[in-house]
Each structure stands twice: as C-alpha cells, then as structure tokens.
C-alpha cells in the first residue's frame, strides 16, 4: 500500500504487484465477485493453510466478525473494485490487522466513487469528469485526492467560479 505521488496527488493509491506474504502461516483470499486471474494465481501458488472467500454473499458485519478472529500470522488478499478494496481494508484495520497483513490487487475496474464536497453524497461508477452528483446534481470536477475511509475521490462543482465555464468532458483513470 504505497502512496507514491501520481499526477501530483500523494493520496491517490498506487497498486504494486502483490506477492504472497512469506511470513504468514494463513492466507485468506477475498474477491468481491468473480475471482480474477491474478488472485487465482496467488491462491494456486500458496502452499500454506489457505482459504478463499467470495464476498458477494457476505455482509460487512459478517466480514468484520470473521476478521475479529483472524490469526495474527495471517494475510488477507483482496480483489475487486477500488471502493470494495478500501472498505474491506478499513474493516481489517478496525479488527487490528497491520498494513502488511492486507494486500490489495489492482482494482478490476477504473470506475471511481466520487465524494461531493458540497453535499457529501458518494456517486458510484464514475469514469469521466465533470460528472453529475447523484445527491445535489452539481457537475463535479473529479480529482485524484483519495480517501481510504470513504473509498472515494474528492470532487467539487466544476463551474463554481464562472457558471458559463464548464470544463470539457475527459476520461478519468
């Protein structure tokens, strides 16, 4: 979980290739929905005590409960969308896991969750900027400032300074 500077914003996560944690005796692999190839390959290479879980059927509460008894020597490998990765990572932190015990594969989609700084609503599935807030309807400029707690990127009304000056639509990645 490095936070190297990308596009000038240090809070944007950088996802480096994930390796098995050699210090661990127990490995839990969690996929949000389908198990991606990268996670499957890690699982196949793992010779230790291991388990795999698909998240689709588990609630956050169930997950948190299972993490409470997570072994001290265990490592968690997560695959899914970016908001999912950070939501589960934050549950893991609450349950007392340290950052080395939580390994995130690169998000399976470039869709972002967007935090509207005006009404605090989170808009899902964002791939371009500006994008309409699902709460207050403002056209939001998407930034790379990322909150692990919210699993979302910061955004603000794109034409607040000059209502006639709406930025051109651009893809975000």
């Amino acid at each position: 979980m490095q936070t190297e500077q990308v596009n000038g914003v240090a809070s944007k996560p950088v996802y480096t290739p994930v390796e098995l944690n050699p210090k661990s005796r127990f490995h839990l692999f969690i996929a949000e929905q389908d198990v991606p190839v990268e996670l499957q390959s890690l699982y196949d290479r793992c010779q230790e005590d291991k388990a795999v879980a698909a998240y689709a059927s588990a609630s956050d509460a169930q997950l948190l409960e299972s993490l409470v008894t997570f072994p001290l020597t265990g490592t968690l490998y997560l695959a899914g969308t970016e908001p999912f990765l950070w939501r589960v990572a934050s549950h893991a932190r609450e349950a007392g896991l340290c950052s080395d015990q939580v390994r995130l594969l690169a998000p399976i989609s470039r869709e972002r969750h967007l935090f509207c700084c005006h009404c605090h609503t989170i808009t899902e599935g964002v791939t371009y900027s500006p994008y309409a807030c699902s709460g207050c309807g403002a056209m939001l400029e998407v930034t790379d400032h990322f909150s692990r707690l919210h699993g979302a990127y910061f955004s603000f009304q794109a034409n607040a300074e000059d209502s006639t000056d709406m930025p051109e639509k651009r893809e975000v990645n």
């Binding site: 936070t3 240090a10 809070s11 605090h120 400032h145 909150s147 692990r148 707690l149 910061f154």
Partner: peptide
C-alpha cells in the same frame, strides 16, 4: 469530512 481519518501525507496530498 473528506479528509477525516487520513494520514498526514494523505491530507497534504493535493
């Protein structure tokens, strides 16, 4: 509200 819970490095991100 957005920066809550961030590390020192993260909230100085921008």
């Amino acid at each position: 509200a957005f920066d809550a819970g961030m590390s020192f490095d993260e909230w100085h991100g921008p």
